[in-house]
C-alpha cells in the first residue's frame, strides 16, 4: 500500500464520515433533549433530498437556495412530526415513543413512495465537475462542498447551543426538563426548536447525499439513518462533539474495511466496532459515566 493510496482512502473516509456526522447530529440533539431514538430521522433526510431534487429540477434553483429550501421544509416537517406524533407520548413509556418513531419512519417511506413512485431520481449536474489534485490525492468539488457544509453547520450549531438564548434553553431542558420549566422556559417550544434544527441538518445531509451520489429513492434513508444512529451512539449519544467524532470513526472504519479487501463486511465491521466500544465504554467514546441514583 502506497502512501498515496492511504491518503486517498483517508480523504474518502472523512468525506463519508462528514455525511454520517451531519445526520448523527440531528439524532443526538433529539436524543439529548427528550431521550427519544427518532428512527424517522433518516427518512426526514430522504424527504429533504426529494425537496432539494424538486427545487433543482422543477424550479431550476441553484444549489444553495435549494439546500436552504430543503432545510426549511424539513424543519417544518420535523416540528409537525414532533407535535403530532411524539408530543402526546411525552409522558408515556420510552418504548411507546420508539414504536411511534418506527411508525413515522414507515409512514414517511411509504407515503413518499406513494407520491413519487419508487423510481430512482437523479439530479442534473449541480456542482461543477472539477477535480483538484492536491499532491497525489484527488479531490472532487463535491467533496469540498460536503466537508465545508458539514463544518459550517456544525460550527453554527455549536455556537447556537453555546451562546444563544435558545441554545441555553436547550441545554437546560436536556439537563432537567422540570427544573427548566420552573425557570420559565417554554419546554414545548424548545423541543420543537430542537426538532426543527435536527431535521434541517438531516435535510442538508439528504441534499448533499442526493447530489453527490446522484440517486435518490424513497428508501434511501433507512441505511444512512441506522448508520448515523450508530455514529451517534459510538460518540456518546446526546453529545454534539460525540456525533462528529462518531461519524468520522464510522466513515473511516468502513473505508478501512473496504480498503483491505473485505468490502462486503463493511457494515459488519462498523457494527462490531460499535459493540466493542460499547462493551469497553458503555456510554460511547465521549460519554461520561453517570452514576445512577437510587
Amino acid at each position: 500500500m502506497s502512501a498515496e493510496f492511504i491518503l486517498q482512502q483517508l480523504l474518502i473516509g472523512i468525506s463519508l464520515g462528514s455525511i454520517y456526522a451531519l445526520i448523527a447530529l440531528g439524532y443526538t440533539m433529539v436524543y439529548g433533549i427528550i431521550q427519544l431514538i427518532n428512527f424517522a430521522h433518516g427518512d426526514v433526510m430522504m424527504v429533504g433530498a426529494y425537496v432539494g431534487w424538486y427545487c433543482v429540477t422543477s424550479l431550476h434553483m441553484p444549489f444553495l437556495p435549494a439546500l436552504l429550501t430543503a432545510m426549511l421544509a424539513c424543519a417544518l416537517l420535523g416540528v409537525v412530526i414532533e407535535r403530532v406524533a411524539y408530543k402526546p407520548l411525552r409522558k408515556s413509556t420510552r418504548l411507546a415513543a420508539l414504536i411511534t418513531a418506527i411508525g413515522m419512519s414507515f409512514f414517511l417511506e411509504y407515503g413518499m413512495m406513494f407520491i413519487v413512485s419508487p423510481q430512482t431520481r437523479t439530479f442534473p449536474p449541480v456542482f461543477p465537475q472539477t477535480i483538484y489534485h492536491i499532491g497525489p490525492v484527488i479531490v472532487k468539488y463535491g467533496d469540498i462542498v460536503i466537508i465545508a457544509v458539514t463544518v459550517v453547520l456544525m460550527t453554527l450549531l455549536t455556537l447556537v447551543v453555546k451562546y444563544t438564548r435558545i441554545g441555553k434553553a436547550m441545554r437546560a431542558v436536556s439537563f432537567d426538563k422540570d427544573a427548566a420549566a420552573l425557570m420559565g422556559i417554554n419546554v414545548n417550544n424548545v423541543i420543537s426548536a430542537t426538532f426543527a434544527i435536527g431535521s434541517a441538518l438531516a435535510a442538508a445531509a439528504g441534499v448533499l447525499v442526493g447530489v453527490y451520489y446522484n440517486t435518490i429513492g424513497p428508501l434511501m434513508g433507512i441505511m444512512p439513518g441506522l448508520k448515523a444512529f450508530v455514529a451517534a451512539v459510538l460518540g456518546g449519544i446526546g453529545i454534539i462533539p460525540g456525533a462528529m467524532l462518531g461519524g468520522l470513526v464510522l466513515g473511516l472504519t468502513e473505508v478501512f474495511v473496504s480498503a483491505i479487501g473485505f468490502s462486503t463486511w463493511r457494515d459488519a465491521g462498523a457494527f462490531l466496532i460499535l459493540i466493542i466500544v460499547l462493551i469497553v465504554k458503555p456510554t460511547g467514546l465521549l460519554g461520561r459515566n453517570t452514576r445512577e441514583k437510587v
Partner: peptide
C-alpha cells in the same frame, strides 16, 4: 401507509 398510521394512532 395504513399500518404505519394505525401504529402511530394506536400508540398515541
Amino acid at each position: 401507509i395504513v399500518i404505519s398510521v394505525l401504529l402511530v394512532v394506536m400508540m398515541i
